[in-house]
Design a protein around this nucleic acid. Structure first.
Length: 490
RNA sequence: CGGGAUGUAGCUCAGGUGGUAGAGUACACGCCUGGGGGGCGUGUGGUCGCAGGUUCAAGUCCUGUCAUCCCGACCA
């Protein structure tokens, strides 16, 4: 293991790459653009999954699973959807290999060409709507509220661990409703499920809003999103929820007979978050020492490290630590006693800091004498000694304190980053400084495109419940009814 | 797909005008150690990305090829 991370000041991007690998979250793999998610990274993802899954079920959704492969013809059915995804689809053309007659190895057996080529799903709308068609006849069959946990493939040109990989893990919800109103309510509800999850579990404050037409999901009428701010001042789209209108229902002919006897197309939503959240988590809280993981998602919340000389001292420490472990576990804390004799205390300190364990407890002979322990907080890198007496309650309290402090610090960063700007020269300066810029926009895709070309900034979202305020477009001076949020994004 | 860089030990890298493959770190073993990535010693570990070519001789020179990284265009 390398001893030093690149510091954030020196090269934020390199810091991120180093950290993801060194903290054991993920590695790049032998397959271009695809990553291996390692146990530490996967444990965090599982914690995210578990909580999200609970929230989905609490809002009435059920899990199901649809195929990895999608017939090519399905893709052409919804025009905007094809347009959006065609350029990044992996295509299966054959189903058999054979020994290479000219040498070693195997080659594609040309005689085993598929009648119809299969797309590896970049998202599942098409196969799902083709399936829903058969499930829906009456308004009594609605709503359909389904989620699936799956992997998808999007053939990206440039990839980065977690932030953009060719294959990634995600969940995709796909719902069908009898009315437009109900579908919109569903899309909005899921946006809030995502927002609450990000804030409660990841301690990552987000902005909730809708996308400009340019940034909308391919095939959606409206795309809702949560946007987060990374430490380097760049924005990151952390989750999206789409109101799909009747686009897919019409493309796949999904109809139902309503109470009034009329045959109607259903209304749809889809929504998803991916392993990209892992990247967001890393870039929200971590520092030059390594990861900082909010307690609610930390696979290990407290690590106990014995400091000893010889087996007798370890034995004495263990006698005190074992009951402590049991009590901490009984209090619902995920705790680990690292009594490996193969690593030294100093090495372990650094290791757990790198991995982001929220609290470290060190117990040595001095502590045994004084009936105390040394507590170190990962987020603040502070240490203090505490009496063993009342330790459990104090730990429970400290974990929630850390969770709150992480959120508060990130919230302050986000709030402080949002600046109102009313002139183009100011805009150019502000966007370089990072963060979100609140500015007027004339509402046209052309202007949005031009701003992007000039500054790399995009409209991240139009906030929900955005105050209406007459103004003039930052670039063109045309009238504008409200401010929108710009940023340079991942 | 354009522009740039790099492929040598698990990792980071050194190897002038061709001549028996190196260091640090990691790993294994031993002793000393132990409250912030310990010290000393002894070892293990390489088809020099791959394929050709030049040469008595190629990590080094030539051609091709593949891969990775960075910068652009595309994207969650």
């Amino acid at each position: 293991m390398a001893k030093h991370l690149t510091s954030r000041d020196k090269d934020y991007s390199q810091w991120y790459n180093d950290l993801v690998v060194q903290a054991g979250l993920a590695d790049s793999s032998a397959v271009r653009g695809c990553m291996v998610i390692k146990p530490h990274g996967y444990a965090i993802w599982e914690a995210m999954q578990a909580d999200l899954d609970r929230r989905f079920k609490e809002t009435g959704h059920e899990n199901a699973y649809f195929p990895l492969f999608i017939p090519k013809s399905y893709f052409s059915k919804e025009a905007a959807h094809v347009e959006g995804f065609a350029k990044e689809c992996a295509v299966v053309t054959h189903y058999r290999l054979k020994n290479d007659p000219n040498g070693k190895g195997v080659i594609v057996d040309e005689s085993a060409k598929l009648e119809e080529e299969l797309i590896v799903r970049p998202t599942s709308e098409t196969i799902i709507w083709d399936t829903y068609k058969n499930w829906i006849q009456s308004y009594r069959d609605l709503p359909i509220l389904i989620n699936q946990w799956a992997n998808v493939v999007r053939w990206e040109m440039r990839t980065r661990l977690f932030l953009r990989t060719t294959e990634f893990l995600w969940q995709e919800g796909h719902t069908a409703h009898a009315t437009e109103q109900e579908a919109i309510a569903e899309a909005e509800q899921m946006l809030h499920v995502y927002g609450d999850f990000a804030e409660d579990m990841m301690a990552m404050p987000v902005l909730r809003g809708i996308k400009s037409p340019n940034e909308r999901f391919a095939g959606a009428i409206e795309t809702y999103c949560i946007e987060a701010l990374m430490q380097d001042g760049k924005a990151l789209q952390a989750g999206t929820s789409h109101f799909l209108g009747q686009n897919f229902a019409k493309a796949f002919d999904v109809t139902f007979q309503d109470k009034d006897g009329k045959v109607k197309h259903v209304w749809a939503t889809s929504w998803g978050v991916s392993t990209r959240l892992m990247g967001a988590l890393v870039m929200s809280h971590s520092d030059d020492q390594g990861l900082v993981i909010p307690p609610k998602l930390a696979p290990t919340q407290i690590v106990i490290i014995p400091i000893y000389r010889g087996p007798e001292q370890l034995e004495a420490i263990s006698l005190v630590v074992e009951p402590l472990l049991a009590e901490l576990r009984a209090a619902g804390i995920r705790v680990k006693f690292d009594n490996r004799d193969t690593y030294k205390p100093g090495w372990k300190f650094n290791e757990y800091e790198l991995k982001g364990v929220p609290i470290r407890i060190a117990v040595g002979p001095r502590d045994l004498e004084n009936k105390q322990v040394e507590i170190a907080r990962r987020d603040t890198l502070t240490k203090e000694t505490m009496p063993m007496e009342g330790l459990i309650d104090r730990m429970v309290e400290m974990l929630s304190e850390i969770q709150k402090d992480l959120f508060d610090a990130a919230k302050r960063r986000l709030d402080d980053s949002i600046v109102k700007v009313d002139s183009w020269p100011e805009f150019e300066v502000a966007i370089k400084a990072g963060g979100f810029i609140s500015a007027h926009w004339d509402g046209t895709a052309e202007t949005e495109e031009l701003i992007k070309r000039k500054t790399k900034a995009t409209i991240r979202c139009i906030p929900l419940n955005n105050p209406q305020e007459n103004g003039s477009c930052i670039l063109t001076g045309e009238p504008s009814p409200e401010r929108v949020l710009f940023a340079i994004a991942y």
